[in-house]
């Protein structure tokens, strides 16, 4: 019983992490019609920032580092969007290719700067003791991670559904031409959303650090997971990303424990089924 409960929690925390990763991807795709292949690299950059900062500056804690990394990655993302992506407005394929190029550059830069060995990210001291609930023992950090993911989901929901910025984003997602026609600064909106998506990925990188640690290739491990989540949930749908993240979290965790050699195939099966029978994804709308 303990086994199932613990693996269940692991699934939830991986799902939460995946949501933090894929929500930004989904937002960017929904508004900009851009498959941002740099997303895994943004995540990895966050993890490295976290690992290095926490190793070299003992005064920092994980939460401050996560926010800091989020801001730095958001700024980098913003620069990339302004300097490169805006030049390719009329060339969607070119946009994807430069995000791929950027992913290679960041990934190799991390290797140059921080070497080939993995660098652990310590779990915060006050969360190292396990939590006892209903007679079971839980790793406290993972519980907190799930809570953060849910809080972020709620925060994003409020942002998109209840604020003026959110209303503009929704208008842009629905009909870009129309949004422009009614005076929404679509270009600035693109930058904001790209920064936001990149920032969440960067912060998620730090938060995922204690579980994953920073290592070369982390980006290549995370990007496909984000792709599967959004293809499964429906590209551009936040709710789809949320559900998709937890589905993949469960499948991956239990798959790895129960069928270690096949886990990677099992991971892709739901995606293949969804594509076959509902190509727009579980919660995607037609036409995207």
């Amino acid at each position: 019983m303990q086994f199932w409960i613990i693996q269940g929690l692991n699934s939830l925390s991986l799902g939460g992490l995946l949501f933090l990763l894929s929500s930004g991807f989904s937002l960017i795709f929904g508004l900009m019609r851009l498959a941002n292949l740099t997303h895994g690299a943004f995540f990895m950059l966050g993890t490295y920032f976290g690992a290095i900062a926490l190793r070299d500056y003992s005064g920092l804690n994980l939460w401050v580092t996560a926010i800091g990394a989020g801001i730095i990655v958001a700024a980098l993302g913003g620069l990339f969007e302004r300097l490169v992506l805006t030049r390719l407005k009329t060339n969607p394929l070119g946009q994807v290719l430069v995000t791929l190029g950027m992913a290679f550059i960041i990934s190799d830069a991390c290797l140059v700067l921080w070497g080939g060995d993995s660098i652990p990210v310590p779990t915060p001291h006050n969360l190292q003791a396990p939590t006892r609930l209903f007679g079971f023992v839980f790793p406290t950090y993972r519980l907190v991670l799930v809570a953060i993911a849910i809080a972020t989901a709620i925060g994003l929901y409020i942002l998109i559904d209840r604020t003026r910025l959110g209303a503009m984003i929704r208008a842009g997602v629905d009909d870009r031409q129309m949004a422009r026609a009614v005076g929404i600064p679509v270009s600035r909106l693109f930058t904001i959303v790209f920064c936001l998506g990149a920032g969440i990925a960067g912060a998620a990188g730090v938060l995922g650090g204690p579980i994953l640690s920073a290592y070369p290739g982390l980006d290549a491990d995370m990007l496909p997971l984000a792709l599967i989540v959004v293809i499964l949930g429906g590209i551009g749908s936040l709710f789809g990303a949320f559900i998709g993240s937890f589905i993949i979290g469960f499948i991956y965790t239990f798959g790895t424990v129960l069928f270690p050699e096949l886990a990677y195939i099992i991971l892709f099966l739901p995606m293949i089924f969804v594509i076959a029978f509902r190509p727009q994804g579980l919660f995607g709308r037609l036409g995207t």
Binding site: F29, L227, I235, E261, Y264, I265, F268, A276
Partner: peptide, 29 residues
């Protein structure tokens, strides 16, 4: 059969994801 359910960026993402399965398999099996 799978990838051509989509066109454009969807096609690109699916082909990327499928090739990652094989890459992962080559490492893990």
């Amino acid at each position: 059969l799978i990838a051509l359910r989509a066109t454009g960026l969807g096609f690109l993402m699916i082909t990327l994801a499928l090739s990652q399965v094989l890459w992962g398999l080559a490492y893990r099996m």
